[in-house]
Design a protein around this nucleic acid. Structure first.
Lengths: 355, 355
DNA sequence: TTGAAAGCGCTACCAA
DNA sequence: TTGGTAGCGCTTTCAA
């Protein structure tokens, strides 16, 4: 093991093993045609010199970087860190590295585009609602496979992996109606985010099916502070909602805090609360938040598979994968008289699917 | 803008601009000697072709990848996602990219070493307590600057950025004693993590200074489940502690849940609770957790500065940066009669520093 | 200030 | 199966 000196190259190894540099390359290429004896010699020399193939040089010749860029933001929402963690592991299992691209606060996505292009990433995963669809479009034009994660875009022709946003919203409506609630409220995420829009649409359609409308609505912009303000707004109304659905768990927790500590409301007696994602804090007993789940591992698996497929076959048609979730009931909503089942210690709402 | 075709190279740009390929390179190299007119021609051609310098090729020639590897894990603790976010932004501002390295669950760090070497990262930030110090040592031997974040190692010769673990533990002891508590408990993180050890040592030394010892102790391993079990253990004792310090906020929340919902204890009347890090959930009013802060941005700024310095001057001596924090008082501990001050709506404990 | 030319470490092709 | 050779796209001498 050399200390501080320049790393050994394949030429160094070749010289020591008494073979050509090409042979060294083959020894490290799975499936290459090489004699067992040669491989052995190369491996021994490589070990002695502490040689490891230089991924940068390899990328230059193969024109494949084996780097996937992942643009994320909003890591305050526990959903995303866990996605990041699983995504990194999933990609690595397929031989890809994850380059983390954090958009500047409130800036355009352009600097990200620069980096995506400069590093010749093989694919790009967009897991940020705040990022413009323009970035996706530019990458697509440059021939870089783009996958939207937990969002879609109005511009078609982009593959995506999402949860059951629309159905989730519907099921939540079903549950709240079955629980006897009558005045409904909704806290939206960022207004133009597809995810928030679909959840809201599912919710209102579900309510409509039961003959209810959605009288109260506020915007939480996926932020704890904005969601707190939204809660104050909704809860101060004369016709205060008796059930609020928040476009994600993170905002639902903000609403719970305001409801309890500023309005002195009991949950679920005075106010039922439902979130989305089923992240770890939803399970914390102080919240015991009913939530529609977005199963992390299946979503990440789908994303990894999809992005790899897009890289291997760029001509493949785009796909919109939707990973099924379920409505996990906890103490933040009243328990309807029937329609639920117990599984693995969790109560899943299965009552009369109306969709 | 070409669609789907191969990206333009500097040679393409040179041809179109009617200059040499070297000239194109210079046009994109800050501080290179090039005539204004030439630069203008190059820039125009580059824009027309949608050219961007290929970072992979550049890395190969300069032998500097401008990639920093960051090994993280335990993203369930809100502290780390926020570090990741800030670190990515901070590094990018200095022209570096962040490669996310997630160690396999329960696996050795060796595969990470492979990737670090293969990608010729310019530096490595280790922000994972679970990662062996062996990785740090191997990288150091290979001449790769290594920075430990929120941890140290017994093997010296490694630079690090940490919070005031020892002093924080002490201040917490001071506060709890001033609050009139008499039976103390501690929930450790991973036993051999320097961070948990230092916090505990500060705590016990602080208690000793006031004439108290630490009768109750359990291991939470930085996990929510293990911390819950640790809480059950501590709270079921005949001499139940009336004040528990947890090695971080994440575990403190687990303890709060168990104390309230399984033992019916009131916080802080029956049990005072203190965490460390001052992450977002500590501020949530259902917990209102007193916590010693690890100021995110200063810690990240220090880390970015330090790692860049190590890259630019590999011969520089190692440094252990300690970023000062403060004890933020909230409702999970009794308010002592004096010794605190209000700042920006936060109560900071400043009582008789005994250190 | 400029262009030619020599690599950076590797893969991929080719003929042997 | 093997070694030689030609790049991959860029930076960096070196002369001009």
């Amino acid at each position: 093991m050399n200390e501080g000196r320049r790393p050994a190259t394949s030429t160094d190894v070749a010289r020591r093993a008494g073979v050509s540099q090409s042979a060294v390359s083959r020894a490290f290429t799975p499936g290459a045609s090489i004699a067992e004896e040669t491989r052995r010699k190369v491996e021994e020399a490589a070990r002695a010199l502490g040689y490891r193939p230089n991924a940068i040089a390899r990328s230059l010749t193969t024109r494949r970087s084996r780097i996937i860029g992942m643009a994320a933001a909003y890591l305050q929402n526990q959903f995303y860190p866990e996605v990041l963690e699983a995504m990194s592991r999933g990609l690595r299992a397929r031989g890809y590295q994850l380059l983390l691209l954090m958009p500047e606060h409130g800036r355009h996505a352009d600097p990200l585009l620069e980096e995506v292009m400069a590093w010749q990433v093989d694919g790009l995963i967009l897991a940020s609602t705040t990022l413009s669809s323009a970035l996706a479009e530019q990458c697509r034009q440059a021939g870089i496979p783009v996958l939207l994660f937990n969002r879609t875009t109005s511009t078609a022709h982009v593959s995506s992996v999402t949860g059951e946003n629309h159905r989730g919203g519907q099921r939540i409506a079903d549950l709240l109606v079955a629980g006897g609630h009558r005045r409904f409220g909704f806290v939206a995420g960022i207004e133009n985010s597809s995810t928030s829009q679909e959840r809201e649409r599912g919710f209102t359609e579900g309510l409509a099916r039961h003959g209810f409308d959605l009288p109260a609505r506020a915007v939480g912009s996926y932020s704890f502070e904005a969601a707190s303000a939204a809660a104050r707004n909704l809860l101060a109304r004369a016709d205060r909602p008796d059930a609020i659905f928040c476009a994600n768990d993170h905002m639902a927790i903000a609403v719970a805090e305001v409801a309890r500590h500023e309005f002195g409301l009991r949950i679920p007696e005075d106010l039922a609360l439902v979130g989305f994602d089923d992240t770890a804090p939803a399970k914390w007993r102080s919240y015991a938040l009913t939530s529609f789940s977005q199963p992390l591992q299946p979503m990440v698996d789908a994303a990894v598979a999809l992005v790899c497929e897009m890289i291997e076959n760029p001509a493949a048609p785009t796909r919109q994968a939707v990973v099924p979730g379920e409505l996990v009931m906890r103490a933040s909503t009243r328990l309807p008289e029937s329609g639920w089942l117990d599984r693995d210690g969790q109560r899943i709402w299965r009552g009369h699917e109306s969709g």
